[in-house]
Design a protein around this nucleic acid. Structure first.
Lengths: 210, 210
DNA sequence: TTTTTGAGTGTACACGTGTACACCATTCTA
DNA sequence: TAGAATGGTGTACACGTGTACACTCAAAAA
C-alpha cells in the first residue's frame, strides 16, 4: 500500500505551490500570476494544473494557509528566545524583522491579499492574523496579569504596528530598517504603558466601589 | 482666449478619472482595470485614452494624488469639529470613520496600492500618508507640548492604527463598525498615555542632569 | 491477466488586452 | 483665410489568457 500514485501526485502539487511562491516578488503579486505561468514554472502542461486545483484561487488560499503556519512558527521561535532572557518587546520585534528579511514574499502575499479583491482571501488572511493576535493576547494576559479586554486591545494594537513596520521594512535598506526597528520598539512600549495604566485604573475603580 | 479646446480636453480628462473611480469597488482594484474598460465607461474610443495619459499608471498616480487631497481636507474638517469642543481622539476617529463610509473606494485605492506591485505607486501613497502624519505630528507637538521625537512616534502610531481600523471597517457592518470605533479610540488613548509618559521621563532625566 | 482509473499531454478555441496607424473634424495660429 | 495642430474615431494586429476536449500510458482494482 505504498500508494505510488498518491505520492507522485502530492509531489507535483508541491511543485505547483513552490512555483507560485517563487514567482512572487515586489513587482509580482499573486493576483497577476497566471495559471499558465505557474504550470510552466512547475514544468507541467497548463492543463495539468486542474488535476490539483480547480482554479488559481484555490492555490492562493493554500498559500495563505501555509503563510499563516509560518507566522505561527515564528511566535514559538520568539518565545523560545524570550525564555532565554531579554526584553519581550525587543526580542519579538527583532524576530519579526528577521522573518520579513527571510520571507519577504510570503509576508507580501499576506499584506496584499488582506486588502485584495477576493472576500475569501481577505477573510483567510484576517483569520491567520487573528490567530496570531490571540496567541499574543493570551501571553500578555498571563505575563502581565491584565484583564482580558486590556490585553486584547494591547495585542491587537501591537500586531497592527508590527505588521505595518514589516510592510515598511520591505521597501527599506538596512540602515532604514534598523531605525524602523527602534521606532517600532518605542511605539510598542507606548502601548504597553497605556495598557498597564488603563488596567490600574480599572482595578482602582473596582476597589473604590467596594 | 477662452481656450475652448483646452477646456474640452480638461472635461474629458475628468471623465476618464471619474470613470476609473466609479469602477473601483471591493471586488475591483485599480490594477485589474483595463484601459479599454475605463475609456468605454467614459464614453470614449479606447485609443482616445492616449490623448490624456500615456498609460494606466499615469491615470492611477493621478487618482492617488486626488485621494491624498481628500484625505487632507478630512484633517481640516476634523480640526474644525475639535475647535467646537470635544475629545480630540474621539472626534478624529469619528471623522475618519465617516470618511471611510463615504469614500470607501478612494480609501481602498490607497490601501491596495500601498502594498501593490508598482514601486512608484507605493511611494506615492506613502508620501500622502507621510503628509497626513506630519500634520498630525505638528498638531500634537503644539497641543500637548511634546518634544518632536515623541510626538512623531505618537502621530505615526496613531495613523497606523486608524488606517488599519479603516481597512477593517470596509468589511464590517454597522454594529461591528461601532465596536471597532470604540476599540480604536481606546488604543489611541494607550498610545497618548505612553507618549506623555516617555516625554515626562525625558524631562526628568534632563533636569536631574543639571 | 484484464479492465478501469487518473495524472499528465497537446491542440484548439474564443476572448480581452495594449497599441500602431490612418483618418476625420474642429479649433487655433499666422 | 490658408494651414497647422490636436482631440477623437475605427480598424487591425499580435499576444496571453482560461479551459474544453481527445489523447496516452502507468498504477490500481478486478
Amino acid at each position: 500500500m505504498s500508494g505510488i500514485r498518491a505520492q507522485q501526485k502530492e509531489k507535483t502539487r508541491r511543485l505547483l505551490i513552490d512555483a507560485a511562491l517563487s514567482q512572487l516578488s515586489a513587482e509580482r503579486s499573486f493576483s497577476n500570476l497566471s495559471l499558465r505561468e505557474v504550470a510552466k514554472e512547475a514544468g507541467l502542461a497548463a492543463t495539468s494544473f486542474y488535476r490539483h486545483f480547480n482554479d488559481m484561487d484555490e492555490l492562493g488560499l493554500t498559500l495563505v494557509d501555509e503563510a499563516g503556519l509560518t507566522l505561527r512558527q515564528l511566535m514559538r521561535q520568539a518565545r523560545q528566545r524570550i525564555e532565554k532572557g531579554g526584553s519581550v518587546i525587543q526580542i519579538s520585534v527583532l524576530t519579526f524583522m528577521e522573518f520579513i528579511e527571510a520571507n519577504g514574499n510570503v509576508f507580501r502575499l499576506l499584506l496584499r491579499e488582506r486588502s485584495g479583491t477576493s472576500a475569501e482571501f481577505r477573510a483567510a488572511v484576517n483569520r491567520e492574523i487573528r490567530y496570531f493576535t490571540m496567541e499574543l493576547c493570551d501571553y500578555l494576559q498571563k505575563a502581565n496579569k491584565l484583564d482580558h479586554e486590556t490585553s486584547y486591545l494591547q495585542a491587537n494594537a501591537a500586531v497592527i504596528i508590527v505588521f505595518s513596520a514589516g510592510a515598511e521594512a520591505l521597501d527599506s535598506n538596512k540602515v532604514e530598517r534598523e531605525e524602523l526597528t527602534m521606532r517600532t520598539i518605542k511605539q510598542l512600549r507606548f502601548i504597553a504603558r497605556g495598557a498597564m495604566d488603563l488596567h490600574a485604573r480599572k482595578i482602582a475603580k473596582l476597589t473604590e466601589n467596594n
